[in-house]
Design a protein around this nucleic acid. Sequence first.
DNA 1: TCAAAAGTGTTAAGTTTACACCCATGA
DNA 2: TCATGGGTGTAAACTTAACACTTTTGA
Lengths: 226, 226
Amino acid sequence: MEQQYYKEYSKFLLVTDCVVFCFKDNQLNVLLVKKDSEPSKGEWSLPTAFVNENESVDNTVRRALAAKTGLEDIFIEQVRCFGDLNRDPYARIISIMYYALINIQLYDEKLNKRNDARWFPVKELPVMMYDQNEMVEVAIKRMRYRTMEKPVGLRMLPPLFTISQLHKLVEAIEDKLRDKRNFRKVVEEAYYIEKTDKIDKSSSKRGAALYRFNQRLYQHYLKHKL
Amino acid sequence: MEQQYYKEYSKFLLVTDCVVFCFKDNQLNVLLVKKDSEPSKGEWSLPTAFVNENESVDNTVRRALAAKTGLEDIFIEQVRCFGDLNRDPYARIISIMYYALINIQLYDEKLNKRNDARWFPVKELPVMMYDQNEMVEVAIKRMRYRTMEKPVGLRMLPPLFTISQLHKLVEAIEDKLRDKRNFRKVVEEAYYIEKTDKIDKSSSKRGAALYRFNQRLYQHYLKHKL
DNA sequence: TCAAAAGTGTTAAGTTTACACCCATGA
DNA sequence: TCATGGGTGTAAACTTAACACTTTTGA
């Protein structure tokens, strides 16, 4: 069928590039890897993968992420395609850009050595291959919008988290400070974030209450919007 | 270079699909064309085009739009790529979806016959090829978000427009009614929308003041946010 | 003269922001 | 005992929403 109807049309190399975010040292960080093959060997790059023949584009990203982080079931969102003519100087390659959110506690730091990888704070990114610096900017904007609209940012925190952790995370995402009392009010009103009876003693002597995201309550919230 | 480094990777057919919106009869409308070639000949489809070898993806969309509307310089925004395995039953085709906004006054209705095209109100769309109905839904959401964030919706109005026209447009985009007095207040405060001394007498006996978008004032607004 | 769309302000409700002190605890 | 992060309430500013009548004019 393809031969019959479409043989006159050009075909293209397709890659996915993924901006993997985590929250670390009170900052957003992005996972970069040193390219281990030509061209551009040795340059910092977003985790990237060529799309295979019998593979959805989403799956390409998941495959690349599993390879670089050891994790499955990562939250991903496609942002957009970068399809200009000379974005890659060596060949015509169309890239489909995603971002991913991971909980840094699940990332095995030994992978850094094995994969020649490193987490960079978003404010201290090196120059990357081709148009990847632009990709990160676009990804941050989309991620910021999405986390303000839906509670997906929680994927960068452990399942149990304190309000302070969430506060710092939101400040890092929005890149501005928020009043502590007003922030706590917002969290307490988001009734799909529930207080547990557990206490985190790791960050203060007094201890801080641990909260968790309740998926069921969130679905209920989505349906009824209150 | 491509041969050297990338020959092992698969290549893909790439198309663009574009949801072309206009504002007509107080409703959002989408331009569909009847497919004139196999496969799926005779089915309603979004304007679509295969990406050519030496052509950016953006340019592919512009080429398809020029062919179907006779217009250049159309506002377009890429939404996302649809890259699942079986979205097109005849071949593996990756689609990059855009939306476009056009002023229906610039569209020559004779093109409908020539291209087997038709404007459909978004609430009365026929069943389209493959995943195109989903594409329209996704495009509407993005377009709604964008028009609420930036004054791009004005591209669906003539250069001179009345507040009533803008009011109806915004109601169509947001799919809900707005209070007339509150709406007028918002427009009067958006100082990049300026009143002209021209009067439109076509829609009422009394006549309505014509307004226009001032690009210079808008750029100033963007810089200073007031 | 009347139908039809244009135009016009005020008040209440709700949301967002600003702000400062006490608490509990381990070192 | 004190340094550290955790926890708490109120009032002002601002934004959004609700609401109804008068004006103009061509048919």
